[in-house]
Structure formats: C-alpha cells, structure tokens
C-alpha cells in the first residue's frame, strides 16, 4: 500500500477480474440448471424438499450467529492484542491454540452445554474465530513500519489508535479471514449436527445417505453448493473487489 510504483487497476487487471467474475456466474448457473434438470427428469421425485429447506435454514441461521459472534470476538481480541505491546509474545500462543483440532474439543462443549443449539453455535465459534483473529493480527503485525510511524506522529496514539488506525488498516484482513472462517464454519456446524443428530443439514444428509448415495443426499449437496456460491458472488466477491481497489498498492 505504500510502495513506490503506483499500481492502478489496468485493463489487463480488469479483464482478468471480469473473467473470474464470469466464471463464478457460469458455475452457479450450471448448478441451478443441473438441479432443475434432475428435478424435471424426475430424479428428485422422492426428495422431501420442505424438510431439506428447513434443515438448510437451521444450519444457515446457526452459521450466521456463529459468524457474528466469532467476528466480534475475533476482531476485538486481535485489535486489543495488536494494539498492546505484547503482540509478538502472544502470537505463538494463538498459533498453538489455532492448531488444536476443534472436533477434539466437542465432548467438552457437549458436556457443558448439552445437545443444544447454543452448543453447536459456540462450538462453531471456536473454529471460525481463529482465521479471523489471525488475519487481523497478521495484518497489524505486517503493517509497514512507516505507516505505523505516520499514525503515531500524526496523533493516532493511545486508545484512539484502534478506531483511527488499526481498524481501517485491518479491514481487508477481516474480509479474507471471514471467507476462510465461514468455510470452516459450515464444516463445524454440519459436522456437529452429524455428531449430535441435532436437526439441521448435517443430520439431514446423514439420514439421507444412511442407505448409500440417494436423491436426497445429492439434492442436499447441490443446495449447499448453491448457497455457498451465491453468498460468495453476492457478498464476498463485490467486497473483495472494493477492498482490492481501495487498498491497492
């Protein structure tokens, strides 16, 4: 962001970007057409669409809650640690913590919280948190020394350093951390649903695939793919484009 050579979005950059954008949409359209085609050919006649929709909604709602909690906690911790003089000391600690496989901890979550919605959400928080926290902390740690000095010299000192310098500085990292975090979040929630049999997409495909790959399982996977790609295209892709433009070097 503070390199000598100005790098403006060139025609080549725009071209590559648009190509990627087009590919994304082609993928989604393909999935939709495939789903419709399967349905039209009668392959999905035995799929309980209402149950599937309900299950997907439940899983999605859990993910949204888990993401929002992980986002606020992760960003808050990362900003405070990055602001404090202990960043370098605490970084290895977080590094070890993030390496703990979250599913190894699920018995604890079940023990303390039971087979509840709250358990699944908090369990997911424990895995979504790390990529966000790390992305923000790394962005703060890797900020150019000159930029840090500029912020200090021009008055972003003390607690004001957080809202006026550290927060805007780490915005692109919040974005990339969120994308990774949400991907992990789907895994954790669906995994937790499979393990605990709580109503949701996880238990839906578990039940559906109990008798091998069948129509419901395939329909379920297509629906999840569709949701993931739609969120990516409608939410993350535009935000990433904006961030790349704004924070370009």
């Amino acid at each position: 962001m503070i390199r000598s050579v100005s790098h403006q979005p060139t025609r080549a950059w725009n071209h590559a970007h648009q190509k990627r954008h087009r590919r994304g949409w082609i993928l989604i359209t393909t999935i939709i057409i495939a789903t419709v085609l399967f349905a039209a050919l009668g392959d999905f006649s035995s799929v309980p669409w209402l149950t599937l929709t309900g299950a997907v909604l439940q899983t999605t709602v859990r993910l949204v809650f888990a993401y929002l909690i992980a986002l606020s906690v992760g960003v808050a911790i990362a900003l405070l640690v990055g602001w404090s003089p202990f960043t370098d000391a605490l970084f290895p600690v977080f590094d070890i913590l993030q390496n703990v496989p979250s599913f190894a901890l699920i018995p604890f979550f079940i023990y303390f919280l039971g087979y509840t919605d709250r358990m699944i959400i908090l369990f997911a928080v424990s895995s979504v948190l790390w990529p966000i926290l790390f992305a923000v902390l790394a962005a703060i740690r890797n900020a150019h020394a000159d930029l840090n000095d500029a912020a200090t010299i021009f008055g972003a000192r003390g607690i004001r350093r957080i809202p006026f310098y550290l927060m805007p500085l780490s915005l692109p990292a919040v974005l990339t951390g969120s994308i990774v975090g949400i991907a992990i979040g789907w895994e954790s929630i669906i995994g937790a649903e499979i393990i605990t049999n709580a109503a949701g997409f996880g238990s839906f495909i578990k039940d559906a695939s109990a008798t091998g790959v069948n129509q419901s399982a395939v329909a379920g996977m297509l629906v999840i793919l569709l949701i993931v790609f739609t969120i990516n295209r409608l939410v993350w892709a535009p935000l990433m484009t904006e961030s790349a433009k704004r924070y370009a070097e």
Partner: peptide, 14 residues
C-alpha cells in the same frame, strides 16, 4: 513535529 516518508506512508483507506 511532522514527518514525510520515503515510501509516502499515506493511509490507503483515506
């Protein structure tokens, strides 16, 4: 005091 930097060190978000 104020400072001018070799790498400009402008805030890219502003």
């Amino acid at each position: 005091p104020a400072m001018v930097f070799q790498n400009y060190a402008l805030f890219p978000w502003l």
